[in-house]
Design a protein around this nucleic acid. Structure first.
Length: 875
RNA sequence: GCUCGAUUAACUCAGUGGUAGAGUGCCUCCAUGACAUGGAGGUGGUCAGAGGUUCAAAUCCUCUAUCGAGUACCA
């Protein structure tokens, strides 16, 4: 006995295991339907091995799976490459926290032991993540799962690094970088600028000769120990004579000169600016222009050094208040203003980021030139297209990318220093034997690791074996992979990592393969809560996708995300939407129940010729839906594709197809075949329920038969001539139902109705009749060419219908209408009485007056309609 | 500051030159043999505002308003 409703929990896990065990997710699972030369590849954006899947993952992987399943069914040799990312800073922080909880630190453990811990954590976390992905029903080629630090990918990172190093595109130098006192050097985009309420400190900078002072304003007074000049604008009349004069820094014995530099904005502040070349990006440039001294005043942890004299040993931020207090005591503080400005924070640990001079490795921006050109020449296409603007504006102002990180977890930089001759060289070997210059065996590897995004940037081709050597060849990748799958057909990811990841893949992919890594780049938006707020742990409005899978089903979550995924628009997630789509799965299930009530099993649509007019009509509509779904999917309009299927199944197939079949039982077996094809259309969106119902209708089981997921996706057939007649049938039925409502006979069977349609053939009439009788609930239909008197009528788009009033008992309707008329008359009289009363009009509040007037108008309109109906019924 | 996006029915949103759409809600009716997680019929919109182009504008152009995002910068 079938259960009353579809039970996803008992289906989903079981089906997934069968699919995976049968290798359906792997490249050649659809060999039987593959067509020569049709290849499709897409790389999974590797989730970080730091935790659990969130709703954004659910969206991105759902969309990727929809396209993958579609392409696989459509005969493409399909690769969806899975994997996880080592996520340097984030993962190291997670492991450090674990150590902290155990009362130890990574320094106590040592680098080697720490890395063992990190690897153990990685194994655990990656396992959790991929299990969660399986719950979503997604189908990447799991046998090829990669990790950004596995053996092969370590090799490809070294390969690319050594290559770029030898080309002079990777350089090392002392530059001003973004420095996090917790996480070390960061790239420009790893700094989040936030509006902050700060203070503007106006400090007295006295002339060294005691002849007065200038007023200098700063937001970071703790940096003044590193001042090596004071500057004014060369055209500033106020300060022209001061240039060249000496300043004695407050509380210090050090003297600095006043210089002129056009960088100064005369309008802002006092027009006099302190210059701290070692702690400010602009001052750094000024320092170089004027050959100033670069004085660093705090160490890598942010602790003030000797230059801060009495404040030495304090954290630079904690010291600020103390310094300000001292300046006040000594009379150097002129005033303190409230000041809104932007302060950079570390995107991982939220510490205040400092501009800091440090020796780091950089990838020179020149590496991106060709990729920018090719993108603009149209070699890769963005969806939605406006993203190319953001891409260009960022690429256009690209700066050298700081790629070294002061971490242990990651790809250690493959550069070695000779302890004897100081020669520096890059090597792919793990432990090079000797210095290539002096043959010394005393070599030291650079202790830093590479920015995580460096290895991610190689992902579209490193996973295809590029630079892997023969590590795991034939298992994780094949020798033809680069030929078959590069460039990747498509990238799907969130717009928030356009710069972090997409841009970097573009430059690296182009540099190493002379082709951009993607043909299409689809950037999806953010998932928000039902009020449109961003989800965050602190707000407590996070929706856990796994909870949704358990509460509803993977199918329902996936369909909800897909039908909401309009290009370039954020998605508002709500339980209401999930419920709507749960109702949809219920509809699918009950349609199947109906079909099976009438037939035991149903053939495939392609295996026989349709006989009934209804099935021919429905197949024509299915064809239209198929056309539109394919068009939508080919353009990554997931919401449109899902909507088209939803409407076809609910409104057309269930709303009309099933209802009409009640007048022609011979059509049911054919409708079942059509429904099975609709399940194929829907399969990429709702893989489980479609698999279940497909087999249920076929009289097979997944256990004993082939899956729907490697059957051909429906193709367009042709539009059928039956559509026209069925449009008439439906119009007549709706028209008669409307007319019945007029005489209060909705849902009741009536004896007779007339239908007036111009130019109808006898054959059409014959085809139409049984459907109209059944669905309009009429005993007799007569086609007419003239208007019928003594009847209620309905004028529709394609027809006019008449229900004769002589054949039905009108007395109850007439008495009901008469009563209504009497009641309305009393109401009108009462309102008229009030409104004709001068005293009432003069004294009643305006709103009461208006309300009564509008009530009167409504009552009059209603009465008019009632009287019209009465007179038409009385004939 | 610059760039991009959004503004369409009560709500959530589709709709890139050709008679304004869907789902939900709302109103009226219905326990009818797939489904009340449902069915039937209906109500509901100066497409943010103002100009312009066009035979024709929600759609293209210009400006304005409001909201959102990114990015740069003021020491």
């Amino acid at each position: 006995m079938s259960p009353k409703a579809y039970e996803p929990q008992s289906v989903e896990n079981n089906f997934y295991k069968i699919w995976e065990n049968r290798g359906y997710f792997e490249v050649d699972s659809n060999k039987a339907i593959q067509k020569e030369g049709k290849n499709f590849s897409i790389m999974m954006p590797p989730p970080n091995v730091t935790g659990r899947l969130h709703i954004g993952h659910a969206l991105t992987f759902t969309l990727q799976d929809i396209i993958t399943r579609y392409k696989r069914m459509d005969g493409f040799k399909t690769l969806w490459q899975p994997g996880t990312d080592h996520a340097g800073i984030a993962t190291q922080n997670v492991v450090e926290k674990q150590l902290l909880a155990e009362g130890t630190t990574k320094e106590e453990l040592g680098r080697e032991k720490f890395l063992e811990r990190a690897w153990a954590w990685k194994e655990e976390s990656a396992g959790i993540m991929t299990d969660q992905l399986r719950k979503m029903g997604v189908t990447p080629a799991w046998e090829r799962e990669r990790f950004t630090m596995d053996d092969g990918l370590q090799k490809s990172v070294k390969e690319s690094f050594v290559h770029l190093y030898n080309e002079g595109l990777i350089i090392r130098g002392n530059y001003m970088v973004n420095w996090c006192t917790h996480d070390g050097a960061l790239s420009d985009i790893e700094v989040e600028h936030e509006d902050t309420d700060g203070k503007f400190y106006h400090i007295k900078y006295p002339f060294a000769d005691g002849s007065g002072f200038v007023e200098v304003a700063t937001t970071r007074p703790e940096t003044y120990f590193g001042d090596t000049a004071v500057m004014v604008h060369p055209d500033d009349e106020r300060y022209k004579d001061l240039v060249g004069k000496k300043i004695r820094l407050p509380l210090l014995s050090r003297e600095v000169a006043i210089i002129a530099d056009a960088h100064v904005d005369m309008e802002f502040g006092t027009g006099v600016v302190k210059v701290t070349p070692a702690h400010d990006q602009n001052d750094y440039e000024v320092g170089k222009r004027h050959d100033l001294e670069f004085i660093t005043v705090f160490d890598e942890k942010g602790i003030l050094n000797d230059y801060a004299e009495e404040f030495k040993g304090l954290d630079r931020l904690k010291a600020r208040e103390i310094i300000v207090q001292r300046l006040e005591e000594e009379g150097f503080m002129l005033k303190i203003e409230e000041h809104k400005h932007q302060v950079g924070h570390c995107y991982r640990c939220k510490s205040v980021v400092e501009p800091y001079i440090s020796k780091q490795w950089f990838l020179r921006k020149e590496v991106a030139a060709a990729s920018i050109e090719k993108t603009n020449a149209g070699e890769a296409q963005f969806f939605p297209p406006h993203w190319i603007n953001s891409y260009n504006s960022w690429m256009g102002e690209l700066r050298d990318w700081c790629i070294s990180r002061q971490l242990w977890w990651g790809h250690q930089i493959p550069v070695f220093y000779c302890d004897d001759c100081e020669h520096e060289f890059a090597s792919q070997e793990e432990n090079p034997e000797a210095c290539p210059k002096c043959a010394s065996k005393n070599l030291t590897q650079d202790p830093d690791v590479l920015d995580t995004w460096f290895s991610s940037a190689l992902w579209p081709f490193s996973t295809l074996g590029w630079g892997n050597g023969d590590t795991e060849m034939d298992k994780l990748f094949q020798s033809d992979d680069m030929k078959d799958f590069y460039p990747n057909s498509l990238l799907i990811t969130g717009f928030d990592i356009l710069f972090f990841w997409v841009a970097r893949m573009m430059m690296m992919g182009e540099h190493f393969n002379a082709k951009l890594p993607f043909n299409h780049i689809y950037l999806h938006a953010l998932v928000r809560d039902e009020k449109g707020d961003k989800m965050s742990k602190s707000k407590g409005n996070v929706i856990d996708p796994l909870d949704m899978v358990n509460e509803y089903s993977a199918d329902i979550l996936r369909f909800t995300l897909a039908i909401s995924a309009a290009q370039g628009r954020d998605i508002r997630m709500s339980t209401e939407k999930l419920e709507i789509n749960r109702n949809f799965t219920n509809k699918l299930y009950n349609a199947t129940v109906y079909l099976k009530m009438n037939e035991e099993t149903f053939p495939d649509l392609t295996s026989f010729c349709l006989k009934t007019d209804l099935a021919k009509y429905m197949t024509s509509r299915l064809n239209q839906a198929t056309l539109e779904v394919r068009e939508a999917l080919d353009n990554y309009k997931f919401n449109d594709a899902a909507t088209i299927i939803y409407r076809f199944i609910w409104n057309e197939f269930c709303g009309w197809g099933i209802e009409l079949s009640k007048a022609d039982k011979n059509s049911i077996i054919e409708l079942g075949a059509i429904f099975k094809d609709a399940m194929k259309l829907l399969h990429p969106f709702m893989p489980f329920v479609t698999e279940y119902l497909y087999h249920d209708l076929s009289g097979t089981t997944l256990e004993n038969d082939e899956s729907i997921m490697i059957k051909p996706y429906p193709h367009k057939t042709k539009k059928r001539k039956e559509e026209k007649t069925f449009e008439l049938i439906m119009d007549v039925i709706v028209s008669i139902r409307r007319a019945k409502v007029l005489v209060d006979l909705a849902n009741q069977k009536i004896n007779k109705a007339f239908v007036k349609i111009d130019a109808l053939t006898d054959k059409q009439k014959e085809m139409m009749l049984p459907f109209i009788l059944k669905l309009a609930k009429v005993e007799n239909i007569e086609f007419t060419e003239i208007k019928i008197e003594n009847s209620v009528s309905d004028i529709s788009d394609l027809c006019e219908t008449f229900i004769p009033t002589d054949s039905i008992d009108l007395s109850s309707i007439i008495s009901k209408l008469t009563k209504q008329d009497e009641k309305l008359l009393r109401e009108i009289q009462k309102l008229n009485g009030m409104l004709n009363n001068e005293k009432f009009v003069a004294n009643a509040p305006q709103d009461v007056l208006e309300k009564n007037r509008s009530l009167l108008a409504d009552a009059k309109t209603k009465q008019k309609k009632v009287l019209e109906q009465l007179s038409s019924l009385k004939g």
